[in-house]
Amino acid sequence: MLVDFSNNYFELFEFDVQFEIDIEQLDASYQSLQRVLHPDKFASAGDNERRWSMQAAGFVNEAYQTLSKPLSRATYLLKLNGISIDEETDTHMSPMFLMEQMELREALADVAQSTDPYAAVESVRKQLTASIEKTSQAFLQSSTEQKWDAARSVVREWQFLEKLKQESRVIEARLDDDA
């Protein structure tokens, strides 16, 4: 069968179940599956086959979206190992980490008042990009060593960093609007 729904997303694209994957291979496999599952190919097929192809296309899309972004790939890998990050219910983070987050948020809140707002927002984003890079390396290490508790903490911090990076883009766009 072309698409086996009992496969996990890594298996679907013929990857080992691990954090590091070849993104070019992911893109290529995704495109070839998309071609095969294109609705035009099923225009004259029976109802069952057409329904199957739509389900399969949805499954493939979901799998691609999940694996293509490092944070969602990491979260998914945790889930496959039976670990939930409890992103809505578990609010206990390292105080040190929260303190840093608070400082970065304060810095972002102040950019509009600074003499060079673009440089100020850029400086926050540089810090965030560096932190995200470090976090992703930390996840690679702890997941490879199957230290799942550590991997879970890393992903929870990673979520804050990505949110803040999004926020920095919003703030930068607002600077453009005001200019």
Partner: peptide, 13 residues
Amino acid sequence: GMVGAPACGDVMR
């Protein structure tokens, strides 16, 4: 008390 919710990235002191 310092807490944070990963879901929304909110930080509260």
